[in-house]
Simulated scan of single mutants.
Amino acid sequence: MKLAAELAAFSARIGHDFHRPELLLRAVTHSSLSSPTRPSNERFEFLGDRVLGLSIATALFDADGQAAEGQLAPRFNALVRQETCAEVARDIGLGDVLKLGRSEMLSGGRRKEALLGDAMEALIAAVYLDAGFETARDMVLRLWGGRIADAETNARDPKSALQEWAQARGLPPPAYLETGREGPDHQPIFTVEARLTTGQSETGRASGKRAAEQAAARALLARMEAEND
């Protein structure tokens, strides 16, 4: 009863009432808890990735009738990448309902980016199998929300954009310095500082060093653009 109530509450949160609740249960079941009678969500990930891709590609294609393929591709990649799927998963509290084995749970599985991203794709597949493509697409568009409208901006690589900004003003490329690392070895959190030779700097924190550098670059670029408006 507790499991059924938990999944029903989650269904309400994502705006889809499952006709076949077993599909949702499979979508949130990680391989660490799977068994012959309780399959994991791995096959659903494969299908959900394709449903997500078609949903996002169609939305981008319809939103900008003038964009060339070279403009649409980076926007698409920014919206379907694992990091974005994990962000959406966090927005809807997907990690809270994941069914994990004990070791995966103790290692912080509910917060792992890869695990959340995969589960988000599996959830999309579950909705697709339960109610068809249009319903799954509508859920994707609803949950991705403003990310689609902001895709052109989000598609820019922050480190490249910051370097281009600096070079356009005759400045050397920014420097990146790891200033902190915390958490267990299997799930570290990095803090990185991005600094210009003119002295301005910003920091970023993320579960990977590259992601932390990107976060720092994004913050510093936003600051410099605001100051130079």
Rank of each mutant, 00 (worst) to 15 (best):
V28G: 01
E104R: 09
A73S: 04
L129W: 09
L24S: 03
A57S: 01
D185A: 13
L220R: 07
G101Q: 06
S35R: 10
L177C: 12
G108I: 10
A206Y: 08
L94H: 11
P74Q: 12
P21T: 13
A175S: 14
R38Y: 01
R13L: 07
R13T: 08
T197S: 15
P188S: 08
M139Y: 05
E193R: 15
P36W: 03
A86F: 06
I14D: 04
A8T: 02
N228H: 11
G108S: 07
P158S: 07
L23G: 01
A222Q: 14
A78N: 02
D64Q: 11
R20C: 00
E193K: 12
P39H: 05
I148K: 02
Q66L: 12
S201D: 04
S107I: 01
A222C: 11
R26G: 07
A67D: 01
T191K: 13
A222E: 14
A8I: 00
R205G: 10
A166H: 11
D138G: 01
Y128P: 05
R111C: 03
P184Y: 07
E225R: 15
T58A: 00
G101I: 09
M139N: 13
L115S: 12
L23C: 02
R195W: 03
M1Q: 10
A216Y: 12
L33R: 12
E121W: 07
K99T: 11
G109V: 13
R102C: 00
L23P: 01
R43I: 06
D185H: 09
A27I: 08
E134Q: 15
F46A: 15
A149N: 08
L54S: 00
G180K: 13
L123Y: 04
W165H: 05
H19L: 05
E182N: 04
A8P: 00
G65M: 07
C85Q: 15
V140K: 00
V28D: 03
T153M: 07
L129F: 08
S107N: 06
G48A: 09
D185M: 09
R142H: 08
I56S: 00
E69Y: 10
I189G: 07
G199I: 03
G65H: 11
P74S: 07
